[in-house]
């Protein structure tokens, strides 16, 4: 059971969240090539080790979070809001 430290709600069980995919890929610009868009959707790294992922606190405050997690040990190093417009309540930096 992962325990994710939501910046707003505190430490909560993984079943309050839904996984939102790789947070290291960047959405291409509107003018990017079709190739870029293809890779954005279909090409993913699958690292064994530290990784950045999106998690949605779907059964909580509904914030999208960026979680740094080790995919091997499941250790979570940091949790931060995905949106720069949502102030981090603890004043922590991303």
């Amino acid at each position: 059971m992962l325990r994710i430290d939501c910046p707003w709600c505190g430490v909560r069980n993984e079943d309050e969240f839904s996984y939102g995919g790789d947070a290291t890929v960047e959405r291409p610009t509107d003018y990017a090539s079709q190739d870029d868009w293809y890779h954005y959707v279909y090409t993913r790294q699958n690292p064994a080790g530290p990784h950045r992922e999106y998690w949605h606190h779907v059964n909580g405050c509904r914030a999208w979070l960026v979680v740094e997690r080790d995919t091997v040990t499941h250790e979570i190093f940091s949790t931060a809001p995905a949106s720069p417009n949502l102030p981090d309540p603890d004043g922590r930096t991303r």
Partner: peptide
């Protein structure tokens, strides 16, 4: 709704 939140919070803040 989740889709809208995702794009609003992550891509188009």
């Amino acid at each position: 709704l989740a889709h809208m939140e995702q794009y609003h919070q992550i891509e188009w803040p």
